[in-house]
């Protein structure tokens, strides 16, 4: 079986995120880059499926040079190979452009399973997996909290507003996972050493046969008119409970007309 995991490098979760004044894109240099947390769960699930069913796991990322660190991290967790799509022409790509580029890179490589984290911590759109499934014309099994592979039949529990749906499809499948699915492993020292020798293929836009007119900020299907930092919230009132804490809150709620 061939599994691809799409990962994204994002600014460190705790770092303050800002948009750049010149082109309204996320300022990625302002913070350390880390693997998007939910993508760690996607890598882990790929490795587990590989261990149980035998699979070659390829990490695919689109991003600037330093996103290669994210591929290395996944390789040190145990993935086999990496593909890094890197090109200045990709800068500022929106979800439609990203899904186009990923689908082109993924299609034709014969993956049985393409796994994503269900959301990135920076853009938080949760649409790229569905878009890639639509572009590739393969089954979409997303927001999985549990995955069960039986031969070529994949069944998941898809998290819904009220519980979960059981959804099945035959491979090939685009899968996205939520954090309830597993506990990602830490790279071992051996894994880190081994990762140094694993193959990473670097592709430019033209290597990948992509149409540059569909990529980058100038091609985006949507554009930012303006943005502004919201003034920080005025500090609230904090009191120490001396026996009337509940009554204090009730008074505040009455003032605010909640009661």
């Amino acid at each position: 079986m061939k599994i691809a995991v799409c990962v994204k490098q994002v600014p460190d979760t705790w770092a303050e995120k800002k948009l750049r004044v010149d082109d309204s894109t996320l300022d990625r240099d302002a913070a350390d880059g880390v693997m998007n947390e939910l993508d760690e769960y996607a890598v882990e699930e790929a490795l587990r499926l590989g261990e149980a069913h035998g699979a070659e796991v390829t990490i695919v990322t689109m991003g600037p040079d330093r996103a290669a660190e994210t591929i290395r991290k996944a390789l040190s967790m145990g993935a086999d190979a990496g593909v890094h799509l890197v090109d200045d022409a990709l800068h500022g790509s929106d979800a439609l452009a990203t899904s186009y580029a990923l689908a082109e890179v993924l299609g034709g490589r014969g993956f049985d399973l393409i796994i994503f984290g269900s959301e990135s911590t920076d853009a938080r759109m949760s649409v790229v997996p569905a878009m890639v499934a639509e572009r590739l014309g393969v089954a979409q099994l997303t927001f999985a909290q549990k995955v069960d592979l039986d031969g070529t039949s994949l069944t998941i529990e898809r998290v819904t507003d009220s519980g979960f749906d059981t959804v099945s499809a035959t491979l090939p499948v685009v899968l996205s996972v939520v954090e309830k699915i597993n506990e990602p492993r830490y790279p071992s020292f051996k894994g880190i050493m081994a990762a140094k020798k694993k193959p990473v293929e670097t592709l430019s836009v033209s290597d990948a046969g992509l149409d540059a007119a569909k990529l980058g900020a100038s091609a985006a299907w949507s554009s930012v008119v303006d943005f502004a930092a919201r003034p920080p919230k005025a500090a609230g009132i904090v009191v120490v409970d001396e026996g009337a804490g509940g009554v204090n809150i009730a008074e505040f709620l009455t003032d605010q007309k909640f009661i």
């Binding site: 609230g236 009132i237 904090v238």
Partner: peptide, 27 residues
């Protein structure tokens, strides 16, 4: 607490039931 418009530093098992009671009285 950085996000709080109103915060109480205390044990929720004391504060929350008192709040529930007080809301009951006021409504």
């Amino acid at each position: 607490f950085e996000l709080a418009d109103y915060g109480v530093v205390g044990d929720l098992f004391a504060v929350v039931p008192q709040l529930t009671d007080e809301i009951g009285k006021r409504s």
